[in-house]
Design a protein around this nucleic acid. Structure first.
Lengths: 158, 158
DNA sequence: TCAAAACCATTATACAGTATAACCATAGAT
DNA sequence: ATCTATGGTTATACTGTATAATGGTTTTGA
């Protein structure tokens, strides 16, 4: 499974055949999407050992930074739908990583379990390698600049 | 029952509540994803009049720049699976925008129809506004820089 | 005080995007 | 002529995202 993956473009410059894209390579949305897919793939491969997908990692990270955060607030912080957050938490809870504690009759505070904290620690160390790979690829100053620019782009919907 | 329940966060600083993200805002993958979603949403809204999603627009653009391109090559250029390209083409063909022409017993060249070219022209003009909005938001030199950086990031998987 | 309104979590559901495997037919190579 | 690689297709599955509807709870303000 090491050679001849996909449709083997061994004679093409990039694995996805960068030629012929025409105007596409000048479209921010298109290039953004391609980059995001590549980064996520690297993330997933790197964190395969802890079996965490990007969304799960971000949820654990958020909870760790905000212990007891209420679901609805976690959702608005992450920009996701509360309806989609429920099965996510159910999965994490089934794995013993998180825990929901009612704060009043309708709200739940969410916490990491000890196991969740331990896993997140391992995940962070793996994520560091992923992050370092990115930093090495684009350079640290450019990485800061990139994040600032992406932050501005993320305000488009507001 | 009729009174439009509102989960409407219109009174929050940012629609997605940027606070409390902890380390997340320093993670390239996370910020990249958020930016990509925002840009795509703006794209979709802007091109709603021609009923084209980003993937469809990119396919039409690719075909326009490479008339008669064979499906498999279009897939590798776009970095998508040939299996997923088929229903996409079926949809575009059903709308009378594209056309597949056998070049030999197994390959199809793909073309835009006149209608497809006309629609793409309208789509481009809408896309220009979307693009201009982005340029205005981040500035033109930064936009060039951004694309260069994203191009590098897209090589992560190779 | 108490009814209306807003809020929280949940379920159900739908759709786009992505991925793999299996298949058939055909082209290319030896 | 046979074997292999290629191109397109179907089927399928899983993730992510979006909306509507529901039950229960808190908040409100008349």
């Amino acid at each position: 499974m090491t050679t001849a993956r996909r449709d083997d473009p061994s004679d093409l410059e990039s694995a996805t055949d960068a030629g012929a894209l025409g105007p596409l390579h000048a479209y921010v949305g298109y290039v953004l999407r391609r980059a995001q897919i590549a980064v996520f793939q690297d993330f997933i491969r790197t964190l395969a050992g802890v079996d965490l997908r990007p969304a799960q990692f971000s949820v654990l990270t958020l909870i760790d930074a905000n212990p007891g955060i209420v679901q609805s607030r976690a959702c608005s912080a992450l920009g996701i739908q509360k309806a989609n957050f429920v099965p996510m938490l159910q999965e994490l809870e089934k794995r013993g990583l998180t825990r929901r504690v009612p704060v009043d009759g309708r709200s739940n505070g969410v916490f990491l379990t000890a196991k969740g904290r331990a896993l997140l620690k391992r995940a962070r160390s793996l994520h560091d390698r992923h992050h370092a790979r990115i930093t090495k690829l684009i350079g640290e100053p450019e990485q800061r600049r990139l994040i600032a620019t992406l932050d501005r782009l993320a305000t488009l919907g507001e």
